[in-house]
Amino acid sequence: MKDLLEDLEMLFLLSFIDAPPSYVMTWLKNRGIGYKFSSERIEERIREDERTGTKEGIRSVLEETIKSLEFKLETFSNRVDNISEVYTITLLVAPVMLYAVGLFQPETVKVSLWVLLLLNGLLLVLFRDLHPRVFKLKTNSSSILGSIALSVVLSFIFLKIENLRVSLVAQILTSLPFAVSALRRWRRMESELRENHTILLKALTEPFHLFRAVPPGLLTAETYFGISRSLRLTLYLSSFWGIEEKSALLFTYEKIYNFYKKTTRKGFLNAAMNLLTIFLLGFASAIVKNILKTLPLDAMQQWVTIGDKSELFWTIDVYVMLASILYALGLSIISLGSLEMAPFWIPLVSTALLLGEVLGERLLVYG
């Protein structure tokens, strides 16, 4: 992915280095590092500071940008709870209620379940970028979509030739390698943010030249995060020009990083708790199917028109399988604010569904 520094990242660079803004921007361009600002107002502040030889305007905008970032993260933190509630209603409560009328109005149930799936797909589109870009992990979106598509295709094949349980097992096994890869990416991402703090401490406390504490190659290397790239380039350029207000630079990064950790921790905890909801979906679906299997439908035919049970069961199984994928995508948004961690959640969601399916069936068999 090509480097592209945005408001917060560029303001870090321009605020804490003694070099003129024009020099920093020229240096970036010469090395193929792109940047852009979201408004003419920011560019005007930079030009004004360039003329006056101060950093007051840039630092003022930096403070405003950090406050905006905190607001966005706080908004994400609050919306996590709302998203969880919506998914509980649309993926669990509403479908289970529809199951009850499945034998009497099968077409209505089919249409309603598809509408619910489309609704949740729309929610994914609306909430897929809740996190600010600065905290996004660099990754290949096509690989994520490819892993999801592979899971869906294989699950459908096994659902067609076997049953839901075998389909879920296939989904778990297929998605495990992608889940491990996603987990490793996330751990490297977290490690990079921690390393940023270590690098800052070493560089800012080094009594001599900072390259004695931090290798220059580490400061110019590719990073997952734009904020990491910005901080390291700030230190690299400061080795030639000097740095202003070291304590302010460290405090600013610690403030953003700690807020990010708090938000991410809440997101992952909330997502993990939502696995109970998907377990209940599998549990309830299994119970409904087994109850319908034991009902004396032949005797009921004289009173009401009964639909085909096998067709209803197929509809339920298809819904459960597709819901597992959508729920994994939703948990990725809840945990990290984007779809980057979807491959990690797919086997966990499938396992929760499988456990619910097995326990729901055994409850009636041994009850």
Rank of each mutant, 00 (worst) to 15 (best):
K2G: 07
L5R: 01
L8S: 02
E9S: 04
A19G: 05
P20N: 09
P21Q: 08
S22I: 11
W27K: 09
R31M: 05
G32D: 06
F37V: 01
S39G: 05
E40F: 10
R41A: 11
K55M: 07
E56Y: 10
L62A: 04
T65P: 03
L73M: 15
E74S: 14
F76A: 10
R79W: 15
N82M: 13
T88L: 15
M97S: 08
Y99I: 09
L103D: 07
V109R: 03
W114Q: 09
L116G: 03
V125W: 08
R128T: 15
L137T: 11
S143I: 12
G146M: 07
I148W: 03
N163I: 11
L168S: 06
V169K: 07
A170P: 06
T174W: 03
T174Y: 00
A179T: 03
L183F: 05
W186S: 08
R187M: 14
S191Q: 09
L200G: 06
T205L: 15
P207D: 09
P207K: 00
F211V: 13
R212I: 15
R212G: 10
I227F: 02
I227E: 03
R232E: 12
L233F: 06
L233N: 04
L233Y: 07
S238R: 03
W241H: 15
E245P: 02
F251S: 15
F251P: 00
I256V: 12
T264A: 11
R265T: 15
K266W: 05
F268S: 14
L276Y: 04
L276E: 02
L281V: 08
V288T: 12
D298H: 04
Q302M: 13
D308W: 00
L312A: 04
F313W: 03
T315Q: 06
I316D: 01
V318N: 05
G330E: 02
L336N: 11
E340Q: 11
M341L: 15
A352R: 04
L353D: 03
G360H: 09
